[in-house]
Nucleic acid binder design. Structure first.
Length: 595
RNA sequence: CUGGGUGUAGCUCAGAUUGGUCAGAGCACGUGCUUCGGGUGCACGAUGUCGGGGGUUCGAAUCCUCCUACCCAGACCA
């Protein structure tokens, strides 16, 4: 039980000018957070209560999944990150601090290295595994661009769990724990009352084989996910496969190749507008660099002008570690960056051409005639119209060592589902609140962490790691659930369950009623906040809606004259119901349990 | 990192072209009265390194310059 007048809930009519997203605006206005620096926030009392509630549910589910809580330091000698190469991989994302002796430390962005170090020095035998541990802790990542309040900050609260195994399959194996963590995450987000999706994901710099992301469904989310409703397949756009698409390079040319002067127009939009060609009729050609020693040195990806190349997919298709070519280097190597076209493959033999099926079309099926394509002319400031695959590239198209057709683009809404014939993908936006990974031996091998198995053979230890953004979850919850008046908290995340708005704090009858009700509610284990401020009713009601507690009880003369208080569920329309004093606790308990 | 923008009262912002009654408004805050079920009304009041340094000038919030902080978009990213 807490009195508003005795705590810090600095609500405001206006949000700071820099707040753009709903969660940032509302958490600021409702007095939950205050910005201290770029991507650095203080959690005021209401926010801290919500965060503790989220943390507690996470704890319970982690313990239920067999993990033990521990706490590692935030200050970590840089050597640990150097050992795994993540010193470089993370680069500027690592906060670095030098101590008085000039030693370099990182502020922990995540703790694979530290936990692996601990286990390496504590575990010697397969008999001691598997073990899962977790911590809830402040993490530091020096983001290029923090944004949207708590959604992407440089200092944030995260739960990270790690598991260690001798095998992948079978009892005690990685898969078993991964599945248990997966289930625990589902329970956590269900208990928190969040609308979420689980999607297949790229593992990014953390590394590893399999990974899933947990996304709170919200329009303002940074991540795009694609869903096949008929199978339940869902994946991040970075990972999403696309179903089979028919393709063929064959088809007669519509007209002779027509070279067009397009001075300084390197982008699809500019060229399209200038040549009066729609992006779906253009071939976007991207040059990737496989490295100086690689053969072929260059990989050239082709997708339609309205589509995006997926770097991960083209890497898989090319079968080598490639990256988007450095513009200066590519130009020096003879590529007319901005004006490259598929015909480049016919001009030089150090190029592997990878074509997305949607672009590998000789005929326009819809129109029943040859396909019209525009592309770069492989000459600065020029593009071509009436590009025809067979005419321009000939038999080269049939040489699997030079030309491949593969899914290399990001999926879009309406694309065929990779899991069900005839089904299409639907697009949705989400906020990533959890991400779990099967790491394999990446970290253990990097530091030489192995144990002896039954046969006295040394085995690399297999790892999994499981992250959950606690502070981000609070923000995602607000993104997901609010209205024009303020936040609408799910019961599990709300800092308090019930707000008692006492109209006249000086009135003896009202005070007595408030004391009675709040006492009974507290005894029933319900968290109560009492708005005892000497403010006008309108101010209190506005603030009540703003901070978004699930239930508001209003103690005023009218209701009290009938021995009642007014009961209102946040988010419901109207003024609420009159409930007899004696029934209030029951009504609250019932409402909170039901939701 | 690239591009754009903004730093003036606790918050939202005006003032800047044209240097000099430009230290301002609203909200918030304090006092008094008023009002008392959806941000009440009136009066009075307190509040500033005009982001910082340097320069130009008799005089700078305003012009020049360097620095710095923050925001937005992109690229990147659990």
């Amino acid at each position: 039980m807490k009195r508003w007048s005795q705590t810090l809930i600095p609500t405001a009519r206006e949000a700071p000018a820099e707040a753009m997203t709903p969660s940032h605006i509302l958490l600021s206005r409702a007095g939950f957070i205050r910005q201290v620096g770029a991507g650095v926030y203080s959690y005021l009392p209401l926010a801290w209560r919500s965060l503790m509630k989220i943390s507690e549910i996470v704890r319970q589910e982690m313990e239920a999944a067999g993990a033990s809580e521990l706490l590692m330091p935030a200050v970590i000698p840089i050597e640990l990150y150097k050992a795994t190469g993540r010193d470089e991989a993370y680069g500027d994302l690592l906060f670095r601090v030098h101590d008085r002796h000039g030693r370099e430390n990182a502020l922990g962005p995540t703790h694979e290295e530290v936990i692996t170090d601990i286990f390496q020095h504590s575990i010697n035998s397969y008999k001691q595994l598997p073990v899962s541990v977790y911590q809830i802790q402040t993490k530091f990542r020096d983001e290029f661009r923090p944004r949207a309040g708590l959604l992407r900050c440089r200092e944030f609260i995260m739960k990270d769990a790690y598991s260690f195994h001798v095998t992948v399959d079978g009892p005690g194996g990685l898969d078993e724990t991964y599945d248990a963590q997966y289930a625990a995450y589902v329970r956590v987000f269900e208990r928190l009352g969040l609308d979420f999706s689980v999607v297949e994901a790229e593992s990014g710099p953390i590394g590893g084989s399999a990974s899933h992301e947990f996304m709170v469904n919200a329009e303002s989310g940074e991540d795009k996910i694609l869903i096949c409703d008929s199978t339940g397949y869902a994946a991040n756009v970075e990972k999403c496969e696309i179903g089979e698409r028919a393709w063929s390079f064959d088809g007669d040319a519509l007209a002779d190749l027509d070279k067009v002067h397009t001075p300084r127009m390197g982008s699809i939009e500019e060229v399209g507008k200038f040549m009066k060609v729609k992006p779906p009729n253009m071939l976007k050609t991207m040059v990737f660099d496989a490295g100086e020693d690689a053969s072929p040195r260059w990989v050239v990806g082709v997708v339609r002008g309205d589509q995006e190349v997926n770097e991960g997919k083209i890497r898989d298709a090319a079968g080598s570690a490639i990256a988007l070519a450095d513009e200066a280097q590519a130009k020096a190597a003879g590529f007319a960056i901005g004006f490259v076209g598929p015909a480049i493959a016919a001009q030089r033999d150090d190029v592997l051409l990878v074509v997305d099926p949607d672009s590998a079309q000789g005929t326009d099926a819809a129109k029943g005639k040859a396909m019209f394509w525009a592309s770069g002319a492989n000459e600065a400031d020029h593009h071509v119209k009436f590009f025809n695959w067979r005419r321009e590239l000939g038999a080269l198209l049939d040489d699997a060592n030079r030309v491949k057709v593969a899914d290399i683009r990001n999926a879009n809404a309406g694309d065929p589902s990779p899991r069900a014939e005839g089904a299409v993908l639907r697009e949705q936006r989400g906020i990533e609140v959890g991400h779990i990974f099967k790491l394999g031996c990446k970290y253990s091998d990097a530091v030489g962490f192995g144990v002896l198995d039954q046969d006295q053979k040394r085995q690399s230890v297999i790892m999994g790691c499981y992250g959950l953004g606690v502070s981000r979850t609070l923000a995602a919850c607000v993104e997901m659930s609010h209205d024009d008046d303020g936040i609408i908290f799910p019961v599990a995340i709300a800092p308090y369950h019930v707000l008692i708005t006492i109209m006249k704090p000086d009135d003896r009858a009202q005070r007595d009623a408030c004391r009675q009700i709040s006492g009974e509610l507290a005894d029933a284990g319900i968290d109560v906040l009492i708005d005892d401020r000497d403010e006008r009713p309108g101010v209190k009601f506005k603030d009540a809606d703003l901070i978004g507690l699930p239930i508001r009880l209003t103690i005023g003369d009218k209701a009290l004259a009938e021995g009642s208080v007014e009961f209102k569920r946040r988010g419901s329309a109207g003024k609420g119901d009159l409930v007899a004093l004696g029934d209030v606790v029951g009504r609250c308990r019932e409402t909170l349990e039901r939701s």
